[in-house]
């Protein structure tokens, strides 16, 4: 397959075949991560700048590790050190970065559409590492990779995504990727955290976690972000945990071999109890591990893919 995408802005842009192709590519990179010398020369001479306008440890580090294992030169800019705090516009920031001739900009931004803005105006490849409440494509891909490893397939899997659907880019990207790959997605959350028009995605929407989890193959818990929800959407974390938190007894409604996923960072005792987070069904650290492989695959593919040596 020839990978023709210059930018990776969202799952939106991919076909089912392309998603599996990315996952296959990631599988082949995964092996590098367990070698003694975890480095291949594939992206030697490429310049990758990680521009994070929003705090992130996991995703930024994962992208940086991925780039370095492919021998790219990587640089990090975060909101606190960037000109953004000095009032520079995104366009000026982009043009200045462009003048340094990077090959790829990996960007996280709190504004939905910010990577699209960059892609429209600059020469380099843009890789969306999360934009507002819109998309987080690499997260969805690593989630699908993890599901595929455990279940051998995506098609037909019953996947329950539970929590703050309204503000979650992880939920959107996963929903799109899973739908394209033929999984049965269920969404669940309290009325205040389900977005308007949610039913138009064509998936069942539940208000009771018990209904959503019933016979699920995969239970994906979303992070409750107090800073995003403000004061009006939930009365308390205590009540959220009671009704929407995943504990052992709720998890028992899922299939016996169900896996539990979380994009991190977890709020233990809120959306997920420690007994589940540390229990035998959790695959949370595998998600992180697969994240590096998926990001290696994405960096490799937008750099021209097949023409490069692995």
């Amino acid at each position: 397959m020839v990978f023709r995408h210059k930018h990776i802005l969202g799952i939106e842009q991919f076909t089912r075949e392309e998603i599996h192709f990315i996952l296959d590519t990631a599988e082949s990179f995964k092996e590098i991560n367990s070698r003694q010398i975890k480095k291949v020369p594939t992206l030697r001479g490429k310049t990758i700048i990680n521009v994070f306008f929003e705090a992130s440890t996991r995703t930024r580090t994962s992208f940086e590790v991925a780039a370095k294992r492919l021998s790219a030169d990587t640089y990090n800019i975060s909101a606190s050190t960037s000109a953004l705090v000095k009032g520079e516009t995104l366009e000026d920031t982009a043009k200045n970065l462009e003048a340094m001739k990077p090959d790829i900009i990996v960007m996280r931004h709190n504004a939905s559409g910010a990577p699209h803005y960059l892609a429209d105006r600059c020469d380099f490849s843009v890789l969306n590492a999360g934009d507002g409440a819109h998309e987080h494509p690499s997260q969805a891909l690593l989630d699908l990779m993890t599901m595929r490893q455990h279940k051998g397939r995506i098609e037909g899997l019953k996947v329950a995504i539970i929590g703050d659907i309204t503000h979650s880019r992880v939920a959107r990207s996963n929903l799109l990727a899973l739908q394209k790959c033929g999984a049965e997605v269920r969404l669940c959350g309290p009325g205040t955290l389900l977005p308007t028009g949610v039913e138009q995605w064509g998936v069942p929407v539940f208000h009771r976690i018990e209904d959503a989890i019933d016979q699920a193959d995969v239970v994906m818990m979303l992070r409750i972000q107090q800073e995003r929800q403000g004061k009006t959407l939930l009365p308390s974390l205590r009540e959220y945990a009671m009704y929407y938190g995943l504990n052992r007894s709720k998890l028992s409604l899922a299939r016996e071999d169900a896996i539990v996923m979380h994009p991190g960072p977890m709020n233990r005792g809120v959306e997920i109890s420690s007994e589940v987070a540390d229990g035998p069904q959790n695959v949370i650290l595998e998600q992180v591990e697969n994240g590096v492989a998926v990001r290696m695959a994405l960096l490799y593919l937008v750099s021209g893919g097949e023409q490069l040596e692995v």
């Binding site: 559409g113 507002g132 409440a133 819109h134 880019r169 959107r172 308007t196 028009g197 138009q200």
Partner: peptide
Amino acid sequence: NEGFVATQLGLRG
């Protein structure tokens, strides 16, 4: 506008 387009785009409605 709050609606499915906003939901898809991840913009507040």
